[in-house]
C-alpha cells in the first residue's frame, strides 16, 4: 500500500508538475554560497557539532560538514545554519 502511494505521488509530480518537495515530503535545501544553508522539512537533529550537522529526513539523513557551524534559527520544520560549508551529502536513501 505504501509503495503504491509512493508511486502515485511520483506520478503526480511528473505529470501534474507539482513541486516534489510538497508532494513527496522531501527536504528543500537552499544554500547561499558556502556561508548559509537553509533546510526546510527536516525531521529533527541527529547530531550537531562545530564541523558537522546531521539531520533526520522522511527517508534517510542529510549530512552537512564544514567549519564553525552555528544554528542561527531552528524551528520545527526549518533550520538555518551559518558557517563554512564544505559538503552536503545524503545518507541511507533507499
Amino acid at each position: 500500500m505504501a509503495r503504491l502511494k509512493q508511486k502515485v505521488k511520483k506520478w503526480m509530480t511528473r505529470s501534474l508538475e507539482l513541486p516534489a518537495d510538497v508532494v513527496m515530503d522531501l527536504p528543500r535545501i537552499t544554500m547561499i554560497g558556502h556561508l548559509h544553508i537553509y533546510i526546510e522539512n527536516h525531521k529533527g537533529v541527529k547530531k550537531f557539532t562545530n564541523e558537522e550537522l546531521r539531520l533526520n529526513l522522511q527517508q534517510g539523513e542529510v549530512l552537512i560538514t564544514g567549519k564553525d557551524f552555528v544554528l542561527k534559527t531552528i524551528l520545527p520544520e526549518e533550520i538555518l545554519v551559518e558557517g563554512k560549508i564544505i559538503d552536503v551529502r545524503y545518507i541511507n536513501i533507499s
Binding site: F48, I74, P76
Partner: peptide, 28 residues
C-alpha cells in the same frame, strides 16, 4: 544535547544561535 534540541523543536520552545562549545556542551 541534540535530544534536547529536538525536544525544544517538538514542544515549541524557541531557541536560536546554537553553538557547540565542548564535546558535551551547547550554548544557545
Amino acid at each position: 544535547a541534540e535530544t534536547f534540541l529536538n525536544y525544544c523543536l517538538n514542544h515549541n520552545i524557541h531557541i536560536w544561535d546554537i553553538k557547540r562549545m565542548k564535546e558535551s556542551e551547547l550554548e544557545l
